[in-house]
């Protein structure tokens, strides 16, 4: 019973804050709504017996990535940015149509798949040790590649932010 109440609470919060992300006039409020949305998803992970992933979600997304977003937004004078949405032309109509079709497609697929009716289980969660064992045996190559990505990305970002105009310098 408690988990049903918790699920509906977290689901409502996640969706409402998600709407907030898309609708907010001010990017700063978008970012703050996104933090709440991510915390809600982390709560759902705890509900799904994945406490490690939930804690990492808060640590990485809410604690690091979103702080970065908020910092950048605060450093930029946001009030200057012009129109909020794509203008009311044919493109917007087609985009809305595309979103509608895609939503219908996803819902149909989700509702028709056999996994949907599977009831919640009551077994214990995976320990961090079990996660680590799979991560460092089966997925070790992917893990190493990820390490390379995380090494290359900061170098790229530093280069990007230090660049003085580059080829487009007028």
């Amino acid at each position: 019973m408690t988990d049903i109440i918790l699920f509906y609470f977290l689901a409502t919060m996640t969706v409402l804050t998600g709407v907030g992300v898309v609708m907010s006039e001010n990017p700063l409020f978008s970012a703050l709504y996104l933090v709440l949305s991510m915390t809600g998803v982390a709560g759902l992970f705890f509900l799904l017996q994945a406490p490690f992933v939930g804690a990492v979600q808060i640590l990485v997304y809410a604690g690091a990535v979103m702080v970065l977003f908020v910092l950048v937004i605060m450093l930029i004078d946001i009030n200057k940015s012009g129109e909020k949405y794509i203008g009311g032309n044919a493109a917007a109509l087609f985009k809305g149509l595309a979103i509608g079709i895609f939503s219908g497609l996803v819902s149909a697929v989700v509702l028709r798949s056999p996994i949907v009716a599977k009831p919640a289980l009551s077994n214990g969660s995976y320990t961090v040790l079990e996660i680590a064992k799979v991560l460092f045996t089966k997925y070790v190559l992917a893990f190493e590649l990820l390490g390379i990505i995380l090494l290359v990305i900061p170098i790229g970002v530093v280069a990007l932010s230090r660049i003085k105009g580059g080829t487009h310098e007028r």
Partner: peptide
Amino acid sequence: DVGVGIVFVLAVSSLGAYALLLAGW
């Protein structure tokens, strides 16, 4: 007891930055 001890503590204390950012902004 959330079962992941340190990670949980690190996670929630990383949220401390928001209070400062919101206060400042």
